[in-house]
Simulated scan of single mutants.
Amino acid sequence: MTASMNIAIAAGGTAGHVNPALALAEELRERGHHVTFFGETRRLEGTLVPKAGFDFQPIEVTGFDRERPWTLVSALWRLSREAKRLTRLFEDDEALKPDVAIGFGAYVELPLVRAAAHLGIPYALHEQNSVPGLANKQSARGASLIAIAQPSVAEVFEQRGAASGRIVFTGNPVRRSVLAGERSRGRDALGAGDDETLLVTFGGSLGAHHLNERMTSLKRDLLAIDGVRVLHSTGADDYEATVRALALTPAEAERYVVRPYIDNMGDVLAAADLVLSRAGASSIAEIAALAVPAVLVPYPHATADHQTTNAHLLVDAGAAVMFPDARIDDDAFADELLALLRDDARRDAMRAAARGLEQARAAQKLADALEGLV
């Protein structure tokens, strides 16, 4: 058993950065390590981290706006100031000084990473996406470990000077609240019987509109299949318009449920027989961790089309099928979606393929790798 360590984590800005970091922190806490987060009080981490019961050290940094290049000066000044402050903090307080540090890709990681490097503390990076962010690319050369969730991203980090032996595929950690999802509990909450086939579709408030439109056009075909039940999460921005467009009768509404968002994702994914969704890094991780067969429609305007690369993790394993957004109005998309709802054996094979990715063990793999640095 590894001796108890102090581990510093910097993650912030979006749920896509913060939730994987919290998933790792939960695993590290379970192993007896002490975790301290570094981030911005005004951003999402300032709420989620204390709520999860972890120590939180505020730092003050800002990104820069590429359309306003002069903001780079103030961003670099704050970064340098905070890196020096953290260096002094760790020198003056041995109890707070980490044995190892890890950043999850946002610019908020840079002061922690630079302070660790200055003091000779090993630091790691975790990259959730198939297109690395600027902060991780800048920090790659000196990292003792670069954990990736997409195999294809390894080449990018090698080009930035990272040693190939320090790049490890761990997957994207998923929080225990999601991993603890139960099929029976989720189906009970949705009123789905054991003999029904549950389709869950979601896309988030960003980029879900086309999926919502296509689901509306397929309502009758979906409900024409005996035993099919639908949970359709529209995203908050598109909820009212989608409800109006669906115009569900009382009988249809018993089998077709519409919500603006899903707040019990673990139970819902565990209950699902098939998922239709975008291919953001967190969605891919959660779908894989719960081993749900999936039809993926990558968001077409994502940077460098990284959602398509994200989707290939499941598609190449045989756990999902993928359609470009521009093709979902074609008959081939409808035919594939409806055929999967009718084909239990094919979905079983896709579920087995997803389990083979061991995405549910991503937090454990990353924790193992961190322990190996000390």
Rank of each mutant, 00 (worst) to 15 (best):
S4T: 12
S4H: 05
S4D: 06
I9M: 06
A11S: 04
G16D: 07
L24V: 13
A25I: 03
L28P: 05
L28D: 07
L28R: 06
G32K: 11
G32D: 11
H33P: 01
E40N: 10
R42T: 00
E45Y: 00
P50H: 06
G53L: 01
I59D: 07
R66V: 09
L72H: 01
V73N: 02
A75L: 08
S80T: 15
I102S: 09
G103A: 07
G105N: 05
A116M: 04
I121Y: 03
Q128S: 15
N129L: 08
N129I: 10
V131R: 07
Q138D: 14
S139Q: 13
S144P: 05
L145K: 04
A147N: 03
P151A: 10
F157M: 10
E158T: 11
R160K: 15
A163E: 14
I167W: 05
T170A: 08
V174L: 09
R175A: 06
S177C: 12
L179Q: 05
S184L: 14
S184P: 12
R185P: 02
R185E: 02
G186W: 10
D188L: 14
L190Q: 02
T197F: 08
L199H: 05
V200C: 12
L206P: 01
A208W: 12
E213V: 15
S217N: 11
S217Y: 04
D221Y: 10
L222Q: 05
L223E: 04
A224M: 09
I225G: 01
G227L: 10
T234Q: 09
Y239K: 02
Y239T: 01
T242D: 11
A245Q: 05
A247M: 09
T249H: 10
T249R: 01
A251G: 01
E252D: 09
P260I: 10
Y261H: 07
I262G: 06
S277R: 01
I284C: 00
A285E: 10
A288V: 01
L290A: 00
V292Q: 03
A294L: 11
L296F: 04
P298R: 13
T309K: 15
A311V: 09
D316G: 11
M322N: 13
A326N: 04
I328G: 07
I328R: 01
D329E: 15
D330L: 14
D331S: 14
A334M: 06
D335N: 11
D343G: 04
D348G: 14
A354Q: 06
A360T: 04
A362L: 10
G372M: 09
